[in-house]
Design a protein around this nucleic acid. Structure first.
Lengths: 344, 344
DNA sequence: ATTAGCACTCAAAGGAATGGAGTGCTAAAG
DNA sequence: CTTTAGCACTCCATTCCTTTGAGTGCTAAT
């Protein structure tokens, strides 16, 4: 008893049907599908086998069968085909950020919003990672005595504010001088190098300034990192649509989990820098998401992968469709960012 | 038949009891309260009067009474007393941002998080408004040819990025020169003035630069505004706790409404710059929130009101408690921001 | 190997019965 | 005139039972 072609065909039909209907699939509906020339009894036998092999599950004795995570995995790897996007969908996706030039934050939020609207699931979009980005400009802005605001701008357009302590006698002039000097000296260097080189090359110059230099380097390295930890989230309410969560308590926990952006960030990050990645149920490694799947796509600035976006929904989502949408959107976001930010 | 003191006492007891229990209040439980020396029959008569006057409602004939919005309004205006915060609560609130110096975004997010954790409702925190803030620094950072990133820093520490078109032949040097010139010339001017003055004073200088000047002014005026439109949201999942929303469909709509940050912003804004403001049910003017209340507080930098924070929950929330928490938190956030940003 | 047929299982849906909290009204007591 | 005890009534919530029907596994015939 192994996975002969007929079993595969039946399994596939079950997954397709279940994704469509959401109800456990019985032998009868399958036998009525004209592409099978088999009686329901035969199909029943095959289904029993598939259950023994771990591909199907039965909610209770007299119900139909439901695909297991293992079945979805097989389906996604070998059977799924990307679905064509409808005209409407393409229209929405290509129009979404065409006209106006906006800040990075707004672009991320809108991307998430479009994703969740089209898929009707929950969308997550990571801010561009910047460790590999290049420095464009640094500005230290004096605040109250002893404090300054650090503004770092990179070629990914990221400009985030964070505050550091500075020596009390360091005035606006000196801060400005330092800003200009760093901006010029390390223009176009990768952020990861900038920290190193500053520590090495500016130690002398700032040796009587206490921890100022190390504070600044820490901030420059971590601030854009903290930024990258930020994600745009949209459509969390769609979680409540999953019929499986008519149970309100599950729904709450799920929502609470999604609201924790840290853990969502880790989820996206774990999905790795693959073009497209599908994580199914238990593969997500969190009990709460045991009947959810996450589909992620990496977007690029130029040819460099800088971030990940994803859609989280029930395991019975239409993978083909979602993959197509993410593929399109990741390329779309990539080109928006590239047009905006890439030079030369 | 009017609101004699006895009716008021009864009404108050009903509101207190209903807020506590969440179940319609009957005449019997009230009569058992030793502070009333009345039989249930008498109380029933009074309750019937209160219903005629519009202060009480009956879910169905054989249920107890539930306070109407009108009753809550009376309660909040005349009867409510702020409750003392527990030691634990004070500890959490005073510790939440004490140690580390962080960026504005992080402070806002944490504020929202603490608010929602303590109240168990949904918390909204507006970013500081900046129209009245003063310019600290402007930097135009060249991106791709024809584009530049505008970074505006004000005394509220806001540094937001947005992108504008620039004339193709305007190089890094010129952008830097313009940045420096504006930063110096309008240092410490209120943002609302900066726009006007730039339009007037720089028109000559930049007259052959097409729409560059007006674009820049627009961006400078609107970018920090767009920032102010941003709000931090936390604890949306708490919505699902309201027993009234065991109905999943209502819950979905509510969540969807809360996710629309624009409309939430308007809600906060409408609550006005009052120290503390309570909007009850229908007063919010949105059907979907007809059984929610919003309590808001204004926070200040120095003595200037710059933003609003709020908690949205069921109309039967413990107003006294929530008001106390908001009062405390708004002052706390105010002093954090003030310490960080106020000069002189 | 396939299929028709049959007995069996079990969740979901639909009543009917029960219980109980709360009301309004009336008539008596204060 | 106000208050209260008493009673009939209403209506929701819960429980329990029945029915229904989809789906199964197994067996015997094809």
């Amino acid at each position: 008893m192994d996975l002969n072609p007929r079993k595969l065909r039946i399994l596939r039909a079950i997954v397709d049907e279940y994704i469509l209907s959401g109800a456990p699939v019985g032998s009868k509906v399958l036998s009525q599908n004209p592409s099978f020339k088999l009686s329901s009894a035969t199909i029943r036998n095959e289904m029993a086998d598939l259950e023994d092999l771990g591909y199907l599950e039965q909610p209770h004795t007299s119900a139909g069968r439901v695909p297991s995570d293992k079945a979805y995995r097989l389906y996604v790897n070998n059977m799924m085909q990307r679905s064509n996007l409808t005209e409407d969908e393409v229209k929405v996706m290509s129009a979404y950020c065409q006209n106006k030039v906006k800040g990075l934050d707004a672009v991320m939020r809108e991307t998430a919003s479009v994703l969740s609207n089209i898929t009707h699931y929950t969308a997550l979009v990571m801010m561009p990672e910047s460790g590999t980005n290049r420095l464009r400009h640094l500005q230290l802005v004096p605040l109250a005595e002893g404090y300054a605001l650090v503004v770092v701008v990179t070629d990914a357009g990221v400009a985030r504010d964070s505050v550091i302590h500075v020596p009390a006698d360091m005035g606006a002039d000196e801060l400005d001088r330092i800003s200009r000097s760093i901006s010029q000296r390390y223009y176009n260097c990768r952020m990861v190098e900038v920290g190193e080189r500053m520590t090495r090359e500016m130690a002398m110059e700032l040796q009587d300034r206490g921890t100022f230099l190390t504070d600044l380097v820490d901030t420059m390295e971590s601030a854009p990192g903290a930024n990258a930890h930020r994600i745009a989230l949209s459509g969390a309410n769609n979680m409540l649509d999953y019929p499986a969560y008519s149970d309100i308590d599950r729904a709450r926990q799920l929502l609470a989990a999604v609201e924790k952006k840290d853990s969502m960030y880790r989820l996206l990050k774990n999905a790795g820098p693959f073009e497209i990645c599908v994580k199914i149920g238990s593969e997500l490694g969190q009990d709460i998401f045991s009947d959810c799947s996450l589909v992620t796509a990496t977007y690029r600035i130029g040819s460099m992968p800088v971030g990940t976006m994803g859609v989280i929904g029930p395991t019975r989502m239409p993978y083909g469709k979602v993959v197509s949408v993410l593929d399109y959107m990741s390329k779309s976001l990539g080109s928006i960012l590239t047009n905006l930010l890439e030079e030369d």
